[in-house]
Design a protein around this nucleic acid. Structure first.
Length: 103
DNA sequence: ATCCTGACCAGTG
DNA sequence: GCACTGGCCAGGA
């Protein structure tokens, strides 16, 4: 209830992604009511580095619809440390590591 | 109020 | 596979 800023709602969803799993920008956006575009989710996560929300937001667990990371090697290393695997093209198998949006 | 800045995605050639 | 296009939001200064 007091949380009305859209970015905060996006962060709340991202916090629910379990370690070792990933969700896509579009998936996060579609899980909100009303839905917001994938781009907006990207913008919200880009702001994490500047505003540093508490509790922490596991931003590394959000990847694009191709199963690729958007922010480079650091994000990849964080995900590999959680047990997520990348193929030779640098893609994550979303069938295997994708979060369904519920437990 | 205006201006700037950003980590997307599906469709197309 | 890659490059390009259109869509058109929220927040901070």
């Amino acid at each position: 209830m007091g949380m009305s800023r859209l970015y905060d709602e996006i962060y709340a969803v991202v916090r629910r992604i379990p370690p070792g799993m990933v969700a896509t920008y579009g998936q996060i956006g579609m899980s909100l009511a009303p839905p917001c575009p994938a781009r907006t989710v990207g913008w919200a996560l880009a702001a994490v580095g500047r505003i540093d929300p508490r509790p922490p937001v596991p931003w590394q667990r959000v990847v694009n619809a191709q199963g690729k990371v958007s922010t480079g090697e650091h994000q990849r290393q964080l995900l590999e440390a959680e047990g997520i695997e990348f193929d030779t093209a640098g893609r994550i198998d979303l069938e295997r590591f994708g979060w369904a949006g519920h437990e």
